[in-house]
Design a protein around this nucleic acid. Structure first.
Lengths: 211, 211
DNA sequence: CGGTAATTGTACCGGTTGGTACAGTCCGTA
DNA sequence: TACGGACTGTACCAACCGGTACAATTACCG
């Protein structure tokens, strides 16, 4: 009984030393890179281990199965993505925060050479119908990003900068959806024409409610 | 040398009998179903063969490799998707065609129990960064659907029903992107709330240019 | 220092998967 | 009715992949 059953990601119950946590993090980050680039199924545990400079035993010491790793990767990517969104929205109040955030998404994709699309979106496309537990987590990740945007829209509405007839919830969903689709198109077409056009129209729609 | 190299999908050079074509079609359709539901990597050749009621030898008689099958599946799904879009746009002239088409997409997803998302979109998400040749085909499939929509928008513009300031190309890209993203969100969240909201806002944006 | 637990290295295994070999059968045609 | 090529059935294989066994080694703590 080397792996006690029942834990979520596994040895959160056993004390994690500094070195241990570092190794675990290295594995998750390496996996995140590979999964983003190649997808879940096409990323093998051995690839991750080589990229992370770790051995098999380390891996199964920190994770119960490959699925657990995938879940950790999702949590990692969600944290990164939400962190960036939150940072930008805090740094830029009002309408400006939304504009800067949209531009950052476009610019980020350009810097990544249009590879992989949205880390969360690509995982969702591949795994939503395959792993029910992960599907829920993916939904929550989307929802948190959507909610952050909705929150900003409500602030704008409260301040009288967004038309009262506008629906922050629906608008936020709409923006997230458009972004996901535009990211997919761009990573398929390998140029940012589609992304720029879609984001442009999205912004146009949003500001049509500006007061 | 059982499989002459150089051909695209393979025995288009060799004469295809009625029975042969039927078998090939059965394989492609079975694969299309499985790939849509489970993705490319998670669909095995053996699964396809069992679903199609065919043997290994049939498969490698009609396809060189699994990749060739995937390409055939894409072509099949693209034909289905474009066929439906064309049919609807022809049956419903003017703005109505766009509205009916959008509704059909939403309704189609509902009937499919929010499984798989867009057949082309899910393949794009999984394969765009993995198979360069397929990536090009996927891009072309997107482009054809986008172009059909752009065409309708230009007609509307020529007829004075769409504002001259509107940009049909960008609007069409925007609609395709939003649809793709909304389909992804919906198949992740397993209810059509997001899809309905996103499509609703998209329609609202479109008709804001109606004259 | 000594022991206990966290951590790591290495070798291995069983199942799955894409692909092949090859013998045989169907079927249009002359 | 003979023949060639399209078509199909069965058995097999090498590679890969997720996961395991187990021994060795570090490092914290009393």
């Amino acid at each position: 009984m080397s792996h006690p059953a029942g834990g979520l990601t596994m040895p959160t119950m056993t004390t994690l030393t500094t070195r241990g946590r570092a190794t675990r993090t290295r594995i998750v980050e390496a996996a995140a890179r590979l999964v983003h680039l190649n997808g879940v199924a096409a990323t093998t545990v051995d690839q991750v281990l080589e990229e992370a400079g770790a051995g098999k035993s380390q891996f199964y010491h920190y994770f119960g199965t490959k699925d657990d790793l995938v879940e950790a990767v999702l949590e990692f990517q969600a944290a990164v993505s939400e962190g960036e969104q939150t940072r930008i929205l805090e740094q830029h109040p009002g309408w400006d925060g939304i504009r800067v955030w949209l531009d950052a998404v476009v610019e980020g994709q350009r810097r990544a050479d249009y590879a992989g699309g949205c880390p969360i979106g690509s995982m969702a496309a591949e795994m939503a119908d395959r792993d029910p537990e992960l599907r829920v987590r993916l939904g929550e990740a989307f929802e948190r990003k959507r909610a952050a945007l909705e929150h900003r829209l409500r602030e704008l509405q409260d301040d009288g900068e967004l038309d009262g007839a506008a629906e922050p919830e629906g608008l936020a969903t709409f923006v997230i959806a458009t972004l996901q689709g535009a990211l997919l198109l761009t990573s398929t077409l390998k140029h940012d024409h589609a992304l720029a056009q879609a984001v442009g129209e999205t912004w146009r729609h949003l500001v049509s409610f500006r007061r």
